[in-house]
């Protein structure tokens, strides 16, 4: 049953999510083209600038900056559109007339909920991943443009590789490697957990809204805003508590090694705190949703 539910959930969501993925791909292409044109043009040297092409230079620079802002806005827009779409799809299939079909299927509330959370979380993860890849593509394009524009005189790849090798050697010497690996693992875990925790908070809030006798959608949206706010406050408290020992160590230590280790530890603890909060909030909201769907379902 779970397989069937997931199959139809993928079917029901793929069109809009693929469009959003296409938007990310399009923005990446435009961003990469805009920046490579700007870098190549500006790197032709100041000769043209002094030869009366000042306006062209300004125009190309503005185009590059415009492309940059458009790229940022597009990525932010895709993030909000995705979360909005996932919320609307969940609400529509669970709590409007379409919910009459969903809740009369021979499936348990747990199966129905899991299929929805899993598919929405996967889309969130995929699109977030696509954005990450988009940034990498942009960086590669920009570096490549620099590299080819300066005829090999300036090679950002070689410089970056040199810096990384040196940094890694220093990390080994100071014993910071463990902290950095910890930070990388925490980042990867946070990347996987956060999209799921995010949709659970959204779906949970909309489900809590169903407990209201009137204006259920409005109550759901307000609950979501409240949950995000509370989560943010709790996040600050968690991070403060988690990182306090490191901050004390940094402020009291005169050794640069200890200070460096504390800063790295502080970073990984901040991530751990965020991760722990995402897991705890997600688990609580998921449990609340199951309880409401099993014991308090009241479709209008």
């Amino acid at each position: 049953m779970l397989k069937k539910l997931m199959k139809y959930e993928w079917k029901g969501t793929f069109k809009i999510c693929l469009i959003l993925l296409a938007v990310v791909a399009g923005a990446t292409l435009v961003g990469a083209l805009g920046w490579s044109v700007m870098i190549r043009y500006l790197s032709r040297g100041s000769a043209e600038y002094h030869n009366g092409n000042e306006m062209a230079s300004v125009a190309v620079t503005m185009m590059g900056m415009g492309t940059f802002f458009a790229y940022i806005l597009t990525m932010a827009g895709v993030t909000y559109l995705l979360i909005g779409y996932l919320g609307v799809h969940f609400y529509k299939t669970m709590y409007t007339d379409e919910g009459y079909l969903t809740h009369t299927l021979p499936a348990t509330p747990k199966q129905i909920l899991f299929s929805k959370v899993f598919v929405a979380g996967c889309w969130n993860l995929i699109i977030l991943g696509a954005m990450g890849i988009s940034v990498v593509v942009l960086v590669i394009t920009i570096f490549g443009s620099f590299s080819s524009s300066y005829n090999g005189l300036y090679n950002p790849w070689a410089e970056m590789s040199r810096d990384f090798t040196q940094m890694w050697r220093e990390l080994n010497d100071t014993g910071l490697k463990v902290e950095i690996v910890h930070t990388i693992v925490s980042t990867i875990l946070a990347y996987i957990v956060s999209p799921f925790s995010g949709v659970i908070m959204l779906f949970g809030s909309l489900t809590i809204g169903q407990l209201a006798s009137k204006h259920k959608l409005l109550v759901g949206i307000l609950t979501y805003v409240g949950v995000l706010f509370a989560n943010s406050i709790l996040g600050q408290i968690f991070r403060f508590v988690f990182t306090l020992p490191y901050l004390v160590r940094v402020s009291t230590s005169s050794s640069s090694n200890v200070a460096a280790r504390s800063v790295a530890g502080n970073m990984s603890s901040t991530l751990d705190a965020s991760l722990a909060l995402a897991v705890v909030t997600g688990a609580i909201m998921y449990f609340v949703m199951i309880q409401i769907l099993s014991k308090k379902l009241n479709l209008d």
Partner: peptide, 27 residues
């Protein structure tokens, strides 16, 4: 709606073919 599991009774018990409302009755 209660027979179909779209509403949960405030109190009391509903059985269809001897089973409480759930995936088995919805089938």
């Amino acid at each position: 709606k209660m027979l179909n599991g779209l509403l949960v009774p405030t109190s009391g018990q509903i059985r269809i073919s001897g089973m409480p409302i759930g995936p088995e009755t919805k089938a």
